[in-house]
Amino acid sequence: MPTVAMTVNGKSVAGNVEGRTLLVQFLREHLQLTGTHVGCDTSQCGCCTIHLNGKGVKSCAVLALACEGADVVTIEGLATGGTADVKLHPMQEAFREHHGLQCGFCTPGMIMSAVDMVKRKGHDLDEKAIRKQLEGNICRCTGYHNIVLAVQAGAAAMKGN
């Protein structure tokens, strides 16, 4: 079986995978990083969004072997500090403050997508831009209202970081 090595959340990792192993499977099944979720099989829902070499991508549509040598950040790599003194990323904090999550299943992908959005579009995002940029992430609980508020606040808060 082929091997693949990459950096995930700052750590070097490696594993034996099949050709057909998806990046999301590698993360969830090999590395037990189960914060990245699978919500569909047609790359629409965005629950599996991670950052690959600094860019937001859907990890359910990327082969693990294609990520040889890549730098991957998942939802588990966003907050800082240890288990006892976790410091949430400003975007995570904004989702908490603005009740931008209910069941929490789409949330990791939403947040990774939101952070990517800020990288691409900057910190001052208006409602329309945020809604447009969230096209690749589906939520069934929140009606998006509080997610949009959270992204707006999180984007502004990321300025200081």
Binding site: L33, T36, V86, G104, I111
Partner: peptide, 19 residues
């Protein structure tokens, strides 16, 4: 009141069925 469950859900520490 801000939700207590959010800390784990926001950090990828939730435990869903497929986990």
């Amino acid at each position: 009141v801000r939700r207590r469950e959010d800390q784990r859900l926001l950090t990828g520490k939730g435990r869903f069925s497929d986990d």
